[in-house]
């Protein structure tokens, strides 16, 4: 059954349709949010809110339902980042934290931690593009729809993200 059909049923209160949609998108969506935030508890909140908004708001079928879901999740993540930035007054604190984490991870030589910290050290807008392209395997076109930016911007952000990640492993220190 098509996502849109499931969504219509879901809005009418069909529990099975809701379960089907949940099964289909929960894993990829949760992992996307988790990689964006790097915080498990926060990911749970944003994940809940994403599905909740899916049910309470009206989907306009201009794009795919999955695109819309990712868009909701991304906006919620950005909202949370802005909130955090406001709390910390400026972005420098966040960057420093990430850099410190990255240094700690280097010392631990734990590849998973290093990868995780390398992703979280990226600026928000680059991280969104990289996560969607690399981990969620979304096309440039779909990413441009999710983030509401031109495809060219998506490509350049991806390029910068990859260059930043390479710098994290400068000197060929890939730990492999």
């Amino acid at each position: 059954m098509l996502d849109e059909e499931l969504y219509v049923k879901c809005k009418k209160g069909d529990t099975k349709a809701f379960r089907d949609l949940y099964e289909k998108y929960s894993k990829s969506l949760f992992n996307y949010i988790y990689r964006m935030t790097g915080d498990y508890e926060l990911s749970e909140d944003i994940f809940h809110e994403t599905f909740f908004r899916m049910l309470t708001k009206t989907f306009v079928p201009k794009a795919k339902l999955s695109t819309w879901l990712y868009k909701i999740a991304t906006n919620l993540c950005y909202k949370e980042f802005n909130k955090r930035k406001r709390e910390k007054n400026n972005n420098m604190d966040l960057v420093t934290d990430n850099a410190e984490n990255f240094q700690q991870a280097l010392e631990k030589k734990d590849l998973i931690e290093r990868a995780k910290n390398a992703v979280s050290s990226l600026p928000d807008i680059h991280r969104a593009v990289f996560t969607l392209r690399f981990y969620q395997n979304k096309s440039y076109e779909e990413i441009s729809q999710i983030l509401s930016i031109p495809e060219g911007t998506v490509k350049s952000r991806m390029h910068y993200a990859v260059q930043s990640l390479r710098k994290c492993f400068k000197g060929g220190n890939y730990g492999m």
Partner: peptide
Amino acid sequence: DIRKTFKVMNRYGEVQVPEVLYHRL
């Protein structure tokens, strides 16, 4: 270098979504 970077980034695998999240939702 980019390939190696991607290889490292691939180690950052997926996390499981606990069933309790569905019930809470």
